[in-house]
Design a protein around this nucleic acid. Structure first.
Lengths: 190, 190
DNA sequence: ATTATAATTAGACACGTGTTCAATAAAATC
DNA sequence: GATTTTATTGAACACGTGTCTAATTATAAT
């Protein structure tokens, strides 16, 4: 059994309306009433599908995150040099964020709920876990691993936050160099 | 010229009302109307002082952040061993978060806007900057430093996120060990 | 104590929210 | 094609939002 055509039409209209409105005003100022007027959908119908505007927006985020995952799965030159490896992994995240810059400008906005950050966090974390699982031979307890992976994951996201705050003015090439620099840096902590 | 007594009374009533309501329901469900009824303040008066509930909540956050800064300034055993140094710096952040656990459970909630995370980020970042400035002798460009500091800052916050997601079940002592482990870890990335 | 200043108030306004209802229309099933 | 099923609709409801007025009251200044 496939999905009712009416449902598809309704959801597409709302998605389109949200997309249109996002070009003119910030997400946090978009009301359900406004969306429904533009989409020519009864306001009650909105609530049959979504809880609030964020629930609708989340369906976007899922598409973007899917693209991130896809781009990550893409074949690429794997080397047995770990630092090149992690660099290749993360550089593709930088590229992805750059491609969807308009989108991430929303996600990193201070008025936007943490949930989208966590969605990004979880996705990058799964990549990070793979990288570390594949290339770490030292055995440590799983609890330790949880903290270590979250530590490394959020470190990368810290670079994205810095990028965002500098209005994405730093070119990817330079970000790339920064990351390499950091990973090979003779840290003051050791 | 000091502040009008009426203003002080109004703001204290609202703060108290928010504090009371937070014990019974999540921040995101607290309405301005509800706060004003409890505080016996006219709703119009609320708008003379605050833009929304988050603006009021922010005055809490500022108090907490102030305590974090204070606790950071406290004298402590500084050693010329850098890893002990950074560990001492960050362990006091873990303690602080533990002390205000109820509060940070709100701040890290997925429905809460990023702004509070950024406030924490900025505060920890300033500590991180000091640590690195004091103990890093290699000279690098300021742009590089911005990324490096944000990278290290958010790494620590990644541990806090992991801690939060594990319902703060990990004892501080163990977090302490985790951090030490990570900082001395023979990273797979190098 | 009197006066000047400024905060607070009640009331109203248009609009948004979240929910419910019976009526209708569109799609799926037979 | 007729029938059953289900999504959508419009209307209404109580409540919240943000803004504005004029009247009132508390505080500060004299």
């Amino acid at each position: 059994m496939k999905k009712d055509l009416r449902v598809i039409k309704t959801q597409e209209s709302l998605r389109k309306a949200l997309f249109t409105l996002l070009k003119t005003k910030p997400l946090e100022t978009i009301t359900i009433a406004e969306l429904c007027r533009l989409a020519r959908i009864n306001r009650g119908t909105f609530y049959l599908h979504y809880k609030d505007v964020h629930h609708l927006f989340k369906s976007y985020v899922e598409v973007i995150v899917e693209d991130l995952k896809l781009s990550y799965r893409e074949p690429y030159n794997k080397t047995n040099n770990n630092i090149k490896f992690i660099k290749a992994d993360m550089i593709r995240i930088f590229h992805h964020v750059n491609n969807y810059r308009d989108f991430y400008q929303i996600v990193f906005d201070e008025h936007i709920p943490m949930m989208y950050f966590y969605m990004l966090f979880d996705t990058v974390r799964s990549f990070m876990k793979e990288s570390i699982d594949d290339y770490t031979f030292e055995k440590v307890s799983s609890v330790q691993m949880d903290y270590y992976i979250s530590y490394q994951t959020n470190a990368i996201l810290g670079m994205l936050i810095e990028w965002h705050r500098q209005d994405y003015s730093t070119p990817i090439k330079e970000l790339n160099e920064q990351l390499l620099e950091i990973l090979t840096f003779k840290s003051p902590f050791r």
